[in-house]
């Protein structure tokens, strides 16, 4: 068994110094739920870990109408799932959080950790993409902001440079008359990795046409992805059943899935069409009246059978 040392910074500056001093041998850990599993299998063998849990302020969640939602990278998935403003204003993100693992893992796992792990199947990631999340990244050269769409570089690979830390995700305020949903499709309801995940967020104009549409998909490409062509098919159009069906068909075409133990590639592509259609329909149906009660959102978010 590969041993490692435990380092515990109490400020962001101290964490940055530990990363700089340790070089390639250190690994940043957030909730440690992915880290300990991958360390036990021998996949990750750091000399030391830098544990971010005791850096104050990194787990803050705040919202205001001007700036939107700020998620500290160390905010837990459970804190996001339980947050009233997120349930009201960012229901697709609340759905992604509630579909995530089980409560014991949600209490540990963080939103920043889920992003940095960069799994194509990360359950919070399609919703973050659909709400146009921006990443605040702090490193030796200072601070930079990067759209989350550019953050994912491949399975387990991100745009973070050596010595950099993701500290915050910021989601702009959704316009009025916006609805959204994320659906996770997996053989088992809890504690399973998504076979396919789909998020849609739709904002309607006064005449009922789609003013803004985002569709984001998980586990159907090397990275969590936006389906831009499908979005373009709906923007400016009335959200009729035919238009939604056509957008869902285009979304399925835009994916690049693999076959693995959870699904065949063909099944994944077919299910993208089904799930995209359902999330779009729900987003449109709830755009005017506000999100479904959370109990219903939870039932919709976890689809073990189609």
């Amino acid at each position: 068994m590969a041993r490692f040392n435990y380092l515990e910074p109490h400020s962001l500056d101290e964490a940055l110094r530990m990363l700089a001093d340790g070089g390639d041998g250190v690994r940043l850990v957030a909730g440690s739920t992915d880290f300990l599993i991958r360390w036990r299998t021998g996949f990750w063998r750091p000399d030391a870990v830098v544990c971010m849990q005791h850096v104050p302020g990194l787990d803050a969640i705040s919202f205001n109408d001007a700036d939107g939602l700020s998620l500290g990278a160390m905010a837990t998935v459970q804190a996001i799932e339980q947050h009233d403003v997120i349930r009201q204003r960012y229901p697709a993100l609340a759905a992604g959080a509630t579909a995530f693992a089980g409560v014991q893992v949600r209490n540990l796992a963080t939103i920043g950790g889920n992003a940095c792990n960069a799994s194509p199947a990360g359950d919070t990631l399609p919703a973050l993409l659909a709400y146009d999340a921006q990443c605040r990244i702090v490193g030796p050269a200072g601070e930079r902001w990067l759209p989350l769409t550019e953050f994912f570089q491949g399975p387990g690979r991100t745009a973070l440079q050596p010595g950099e830390i993701l500290t915050e995700l910021r989601l702009p305020p959704p316009p009025p008359r916006t609805g959204g949903l994320y659906i996770k499709h997996s053989p088992r309801g809890a504690m399973d990795i998504s076979a396919i995940g789909a998020a849609a967020v739709v904002s309607l104009a006064d005449d009922g046409a789609c003013r803004r549409v985002s569709i984001a998909l998980g586990a159907v490409a090397p990275v969590p992805m936006r389906a831009n062509a499908a979005e373009g098919r709906l923007i400016g159009q009335q959200p009729t059943a035919a238009n939604i069906a056509e957008a869902a068909r285009i979304a399925a075409q835009s994916t690049n899935p693999i076959s693995d133990v959870r699904s065949g590639a063909g099944y994944r592509r077919d299910m993208v069409q089904v799930l995209t259609q359902r999330t779009l329909q729900h987003a449109v149906a709830t755009a005017a009246g506000g999100p479904a009660p959370f109990g219903e959102l939870r039932r919709l978010a976890l689809q073990t059978a189609i």
Binding site: Y6, G31, S32, L36, V49, C51, Q104, V105, N107, L108
Partner: peptide, 8 residues
Amino acid sequence: PVTSCLVL
């Protein structure tokens, strides 16, 4: 509740 196997 947390899974203590995943806590450092």
